[in-house]
Every structure is written in C-alpha cells, then in structure tokens.
C-alpha cells in the first residue's frame, strides 16, 4: 500500500463498522483491505505510544488485524463501533504481550462477551455511531489538562501517582481531573438513555 492511499482514506465510523459486518458475513477481502488501511497504521501508532519498539508495534498491529478477520462474527454493531471493538482487541493483545513478553497465538485470552441479541442491522449501527459521535464531540470539549490525562491513562502504562509526578501536580489534582473528565464523557454517552 502507498501512504497516499492511507491518507486519502476518509471512511467515517459508520462505514468502518459496516466493513466489519461485511467481513463477518461475506469474508470479503476487499472490505478487509479497506479496514486494514485505516486501522493498521493507527494500531501501530497506538502500540508505539504504549512504549513498544517499532518491530513489536508493527507485529502487534498485524496480530490485531488478524484477530479482526477471525473474530469479525463476534462484532456487535449495536454495542460498539468498529474503532471501539478494535481498540479492545489491541488492548487485550497489549496486556497479553506485557504479561508474557511475547505474542500468544490468536484465539485465546478472550474475555467473556455479551451475546449479540439480534442480527446486525442498520438501525443498531446508526444508534451506536450516533452515541459514539456524541462521545467524540465531548472529548473535544474537555479542557486540555483533562484531555491530556485521559490520553495518558490510555496510552501510558502509568498509575495516576506517576502521571502526577511527571506533570508536577498533586495526585489529588490528577484524580479530580480524571473524575471531571470521566463524568463529562459518561454524560455524553448516557444522553440516549
């Protein structure tokens, strides 16, 4: 693939979720290629930010995409968007890698999942993507300090104590920023209840 094709790729969250559904139902390789071009470079970015070496980050990105192919049938568009689902696969691989210092073959380490109640449908996909869109908007309304701490919580491997030391602010301040940020984000997601 060329970097140009990755950058021209402007698929929205709904389109990305639909690709996973098509991969599940039709084992469609073209859909997988599009999904790969969007996510593999971002997954590599995620693993690099989590402190992995370049070759490890590349390998874990590959492994994540392989699991996306294999587990596509477990994707429930009523529950989460493609980005959220793929994030959880990447996170589990990262946890596994840090615990074992190696990559376990895919297929194990699965957390229990809620069963999908119904076959994927367009309406569910729309509701999920609207909910996640509200969350993305809410993320942008966080103060830069709140946003920085949420980001560090996801990409660093650091307890809040250490984040506090690095930012030179008291632990209590970190905790209250996290609490405020989470309350805002949760309010955005709970809006549809």
């Amino acid at each position: 693939m060329t970097s140009a094709s990755a950058e021209n790729n402007a698929l929205g969250p709904q389109a990305l979720s639909r690709l996973v559904v098509v991969i599940a139902t039709d084992r469609d390789r073209q859909a997988f290629t599009w999904l790969y071009r969007h996510y593999a470079p971002r997954l590599k970015s995620y693993f690099l930010r989590s402190g992995m070496a370049g070759n490890v980050a590349e390998e874990l990105a590959q492994e994540t995409m392989l699991q996306v192919w294999r587990k596509a049938a477990l994707f429930d568009p009523a529950k989460a968007g493609a980005g959220t689902w793929i994030f959880t696969i990447a996170r589990n691989l990262r946890v596994d890698y840090l615990r074992h210092d190696r990559i376990r073959p895919s297929g194990d380490g699965e957390m229990p999942e809620d069963e999908a109640d119904d076959a994927p449908n367009g309406e569910a996909l729309l509701i999920t993507s609207e909910r996640e869109e509200r969350l993305r908007t809410a993320l942008q309304t966080l103060s830069s300090e709140q946003e920085a701490i949420v980001r560090l919580s996801f990409f660093g491997d650091k307890p809040h104590m250490q984040i506090a030391q690095e930012l030179g602010i008291p632990l209590g301040t970190v905790k209250s920023r996290v609490r405020l940020a989470l309350a805002k984000l949760r309010a955005a997601l709970d809006g549809d209840k």
Binding site: S3, P41, T84, E132
Partner: peptide, 21 residues
C-alpha cells in the same frame, strides 16, 4: 463500554504510522 469507546475514539484520532510495505 463507555470507557472502551473513549479508547476507540482516541485510536481513530491517532496519526497513522507507516507499516512495512
């Protein structure tokens, strides 16, 4: 799930890194 969606949003917003050709 709400917090995982935060992770998903952050993942989607990350700058892409070049994969091996």
């Amino acid at each position: 799930l709400a917090f995982e969606a935060v992770g998903g949003a952050l993942l989607d917003a990350l700058p892409p890194e070049r994969m091996e050709p």
